[in-house]
Write a protein that binds this DNA or RNA. Structure first.
Lengths: 344, 344
DNA sequence: TAGGTGATGGAATACGTTTTCCGAAAGAGG
DNA sequence: CCTCTTTCGGAAAACGTATTCCATCACCTA
């Protein structure tokens, strides 16, 4: 398909049309350091324009100067991924590189397969975004594959928390969650339910741990902190919220969700049940997705500077070689309307 | 960078390690029809595994069997683009192809440049998504470039309305908007303001025209329809909403926004001003983005089956050659809480 | 057993480009 | 006027893979 019937016009055709040699045409059209006489240069450019010549990236790549950036993500439809994709694209376009994207749908087996597949492109950098990128879950196979890729001269950047020996841009989930927990405790809440998301996902787990840290530091008794799990989605939050109210809130005055989506789901469950937020219970989220300001009440949450993280990932991916760098991006507490101060 | 120092292991290395010829190794590792003796096959597979061999996509592409899909979009951060990207990725992954993405930021010059650049990849298909893909705006240059690409054996699919002679997946913006306009008229509204978005963008313009069609068909007098313009964003809607209330609603009982984002912005402006939706005015959106059900009140809007459109685009891009096909995707009226019935 | 036939490994070639390397021509310096 | 240097066009090699063609070998049939 790529070199069909008789269609494509090659450098050879351009050279012939311009009446010069292949080498000369290449020097004019490629980014060569060699100078060519103005007369010839003009002829080549004219021929290329006339024939609508477009150099074959594959052939060009073979000779050594390829350039593509690969993104391997769990899910391409989340807002944060869109931002990362966009940041990568912007960075790539300044150097004439291409961005290729792949989705793994959170399946570790598929993740391995995808990386193996992507490796064929010999991308300059591979940005890996996943909820669970750690040595254990991968059985070492993924690590080996990534190492082989590095041996090929590529660079790996992990977006998210990881214990793998690659550059990474991580969020201080636990620290930010701790601050949010402290805030909740300091505003007078005493019985807290945590909707913790999935048990086996790294980010939600770290946030849950941080919530607990902060609440305890703020003086909430351990016995008064309840943790429930659910799917990491709006639906999961809705369902968990329903379970919560069905089982009786029993004096719970604050609910902390592992992310905004879950919080929005829970919010809906509370509204269904006639539980007023923040009058009856305060509710917090995490991520500060756009949705957070578009629900009523607007969510108190933690803002993650995703755009910054995305560009930071690109910087690591394209920057000068150097020691492995772990960049930690701080979250910022954003207090809105979904939390109240309890004076009682 | 792609073929660095001494890193990459090539088919040659695998063949040597397995003690067979290059051809044999290629036959085992590639998708060849030739059979090779079990003994040799085993040795080759073992060597490839041990060396973590990954075939060079560029070299492979040269021999004739490349496969990539290119997406050229205005803006990669919108939710609808994320869905299209995801649909493309899914389709590509089943055939072992890659998806590359590029953004043009709505700049026609950049659009041309991008397509020229992308053409180097010899992608099997080029999906072009843009608010304004028409012959006039492009001065013919873009058309020529796309034609040259087709001559190379590629296929062009335009997502969005276009008068260009390529496959396309379009939304019946005007028709759906007309139905929404009729609905608003039939539910008793008599003075309507339309927040029409940007004057020069095709989709908002078509929707506005459709709103007007529907309202008139439903019996709303032309003098009672007011049209205001704004940026196509939440901020634009917010600002337009403020202008609207500042100037006095003067009996306006319904506001129709060109899309959900604008509607959400307007909703916020109304809330600020103490205008209750839908009690004081009804409000409608367009697109049915996720946000539409997460605001209060939930938006009455038109749902566009974006996922369907995305897969449809892929189908056209990868399907059998045939006559140019224009697929029109119907919108679906979704009535929620932001519109009331006016009996008075 | 001779000749035919199907299977299969290996050498060589092609893909389109960039980049040496080489040679020719022109300019500079004595 | 001769030589040394610089400039620049062209021929050819290289990149890594898939495939065509050729050679070999085993097997089958008469």
């Amino acid at each position: 398909m790529p070199h069909p019937a008789r269609g494509t016009v090659t450098l050879h055709d351009v050279a012939a049309a311009a009446g010069v040699s292949l080498a000369t045409a290449s020097r004019v059209l490629g980014a060569s350091s060699r100078t060519v006489a103005p007369e010839y240069r003009k002829r080549v450019l004219a021929a290329a324009e006339r024939l609508r010549y477009s150099a074959d990236a594959a052939a060009r790549a073979m000779r050594g100067t390829s350039s593509s950036l690969a993104l391997v993500a769990d899910d391409l439809t989340t807002p944060s991924m869109a931002i990362v994709v966009s940041a990568m694209e912007r960075a790539a376009s300044t150097t004439g590189a291409f961005v290729t994207v792949s989705a793994t749908h959170g399946d570790p087996a598929r993740q391995l397969e995808t990386i193996r597949h992507v490796r064929a492109l010999r991308p300059r950098a591979l940005v890996l975004t996943s909820g669970r990128v750690d040595a254990g879950a991968l059985s070492g196979r993924l690590l080996e594959e990534l190492r082989a890729y590095e041996r090929d001269g590529g660079r790996v950047v992990v977006v998210g928390d990881t214990d793998l020996p690659f550059h990474s841009v991580g969020f201080d989930n636990r620290g930010a969650a701790r601050r949010l927990g402290e805030f909740v405790a300091e505003t007078g809440h005493r019985r807290v339910a945590i909707i913790a998301g999935a048990r086996d996902q790294a980010a939600p787990a770290a946030r849950t741990a941080g919530f607990v840290d902060g609440l305890r530091a703020g003086g909430v008794a351990e016995a008064d902190v309840r943790i429930v799990h659910c799917a990491v989605s709006r639906e999961g939050g809705l369902e968990a919220g329903r379970r919560l109210v069905a089982g009786g809130l029993a004096g719970t005055d604050a609910v902390m969700a592992a992310n905004d989506l879950i919080a929005v789901g829970a919010l809906r469950a509370f509204r269904e049940a006639g539980v007023a937020v923040p009058r009856d219970v305060s509710l917090t989220g995490f991520d500060d997705i756009r949705l957070a300001v578009n629900v009523t009440p607007r969510l108190t949450t933690v803002a993650l500077p995703l755009a910054y993280a995305g560009t930071e990932a690109i910087r690591l991916a394209l920057g000068e070689p150097g020691a492995i760098t772990h960049v930690t991006v701080e979250g910022r507490l954003v207090v809105r309307d979904s939390t109240a101060e309890r004076t009682g």
